[in-house]
Design a protein around this nucleic acid. Structure first.
Lengths: 211, 211
DNA sequence: TAGATTGTTAATCGATTAACAATC
DNA sequence: TAGATTGTTAATCGATTAACAATC
């Protein structure tokens, strides 16, 4: 598969959202869906949906649109790893623990298998079924549990130091919820999410609309 | 100010991030900063930084770069409302409460002034200094506290109904953490954030890098 | 001065959308 | 059939970057 070119980042995001919505369709017994139906759910154009689906090489039928289950499976083939990928939440504060409960049971190929903290009140506790370990056991557990992805929710003051450690330990992807600017080597994928930025963006456009 | 054209969405996001980093600079006593320094923190190009700053009409000096405090103040003028904007967290579950603590004291012009839930164990409690009200009091409190923005963290099954209610009550901006597809009228700004999508994006690129 | 930096236009790149042939 | 839909190319749009003059 080394020959397949990576999909555009935006397409990957939308595929994830298509799947989320398709899963609800299955739950409500819908077996086929048109591009304009998917588009309406995501507030995008039907052309964009068809183009994304074209990029992953799937075809619908003219009368019935896309087979919901087939499309879900194909998106799974694209996004998921065959044997799943294990995830750790590093930093078991309020946000880290909320994320653990939020993810619980949501995706079978993407499992949170451990949390890490230094606070003795958290270490060795279990949050929503996820064991919390001391930072000291980072290497050990990452290797043992075959963890490749980390959700980073430590305090910003710790973030740089912890990230360096994670990268040395062989982590290949980081979803960063801290506000600290991080640097990772080229082979590590870093995705940033800053709630304040999202909220400030809302605030800016609300202010703009008022005028 | 009705004549000023809205900045590109991406520029607004970056301005928020520039400010966050500039605030750390102030804290560490740095008074001036070059475009390439800001760029390095955000992993973008110095040209992009200069262009964004050009768009907001600020000028640096050739020898010293940009005055950190002046730039912070100007970004504040752009993003913040003069008298601040009040925010409510609707849904005081794990995620909602984590967000409340996360925001505590972070921005003076963007205050979380209330939370809402139906669970009797949460109603009338105070989380990180924020009072939790029953959903029944939505209109009353939104009006009384002059709330224009909502962070939505209710269960997905409730999201559509609650959103309709919020829009009717006059909310002008929603930051949606639920997985439900929402529809709002044109004058309401809706920003979506889906953690699973972010994590699946990381998972996809980690998988790709491995091959 | 030479080198480093800003400000800004023009070119490029990437992502979205318009247009339309094919088909059921 | 007529109308609705898919698949796909070409055009457009928007965002980023290259290039470079100005300046300290």
């Amino acid at each position: 598969m080394k020959n397949t070119i990576a999909l555009p980042s935006k397409t990957v995001e939308r595929l994830s959202q298509y799947r989320r919505n398709l899963l609800s369709c299955v739950a409500s017994g819908k077996t086929h869906i048109f591009s304009h139906e998917i588009a309406a759910l995501l507030h995008i154009t039907p052309v964009q949906v068809r183009r994304d689906i074209m990029l992953i090489g799937y075809s619908g039928t003219l009368r019935k649109g896309y087979d919901v289950q087939e499309l879900i499976d194909l998106i799974g083939d694209i996004i998921d790893s065959e044997n799943g990928q294990n995830v750790a939440v590093v930093g078991a504060g309020n946000l880290g623990r909320a994320i653990i409960s939020y993810f619980k049971g949501k995706r079978s190929k993407l499992l949170i298998v451990g949390a890490f903290d230094t606070n003795p009140e958290k270490v060795d506790k279990v949050f929503a079924g996820v064991q919390c370990y001391h930072f000291d056991k980072l290497e050990e557990i990452i290797e043992k549990e075959n963890i490749s992805i980390v959700i980073l929710t430590v305090p910003p003051t710790e973030a740089v130091k912890v990230t360096e450690h994670l990268v040395n330990t062989g982590i290949k992807g980081i979803l960063n919820f801290t506000t600290a600017p991080l640097n990772v080597s080229e082979d590590v994928f870093l995705e940033e999410y800053d709630m304040i930025t999202s909220l400030e963006k809302v605030a800016y456009f609300v202010k703009k609309n008022e005028k």
